[in-house]
Amino acid sequence: MKRLILILLLSFFPLTVFSFDWAVTGGPVTYFPAGKHVPEGLYAQAGARFVLTPRIELELYASPQITPEPFSAVGFGVLAGFNLLEDIEPAYFHMIADAGVFFSYVSETQEMHPKIQVRLSPLSIGNPYYRYRGRLLTFGVLYDLKDQSVSFSFSMWIQNWFVSRH
């Protein structure tokens, strides 16, 4: 587990030395239906998102459980993001699709489940020029490679705070 986190962090650390726009991301997320590898509760998601090209982005994030038992379950995701309508700037309104992998880990069972994740934000507001972007009503589908089952995710709001400008 620790090795996986370290490899992920080291894999993406070199990105920070290039002159990308990048953002700190944060927001709530719900996974449903609840199961043994996605226990019921409120989850947060926090991470970093890199604007690689005007249309393509890369996100690395963690998603710990907040309620009812903080940090009793956690997920890690790596996503490629696509601005579907236009380039990220100067457009103010966007539709964003993400695709990637998500690993969920439950401390009680000590099981890790890799998943394929696809999610769509039908409306996002803002861009790096304004230093923020709010992604509204993000709906995701997760395919568990171990259980071969499908689950879903929903976020009312995910905020991107752009802290670096190229």
Binding site: P28, T30, G41, L42, F154
Partner: peptide
């Protein structure tokens, strides 16, 4: 995290 209240978001 309350009795009789869902722990979902």
């Amino acid at each position: 995290v309350l009795p009789k209240v869902s722990s979902l978001e």
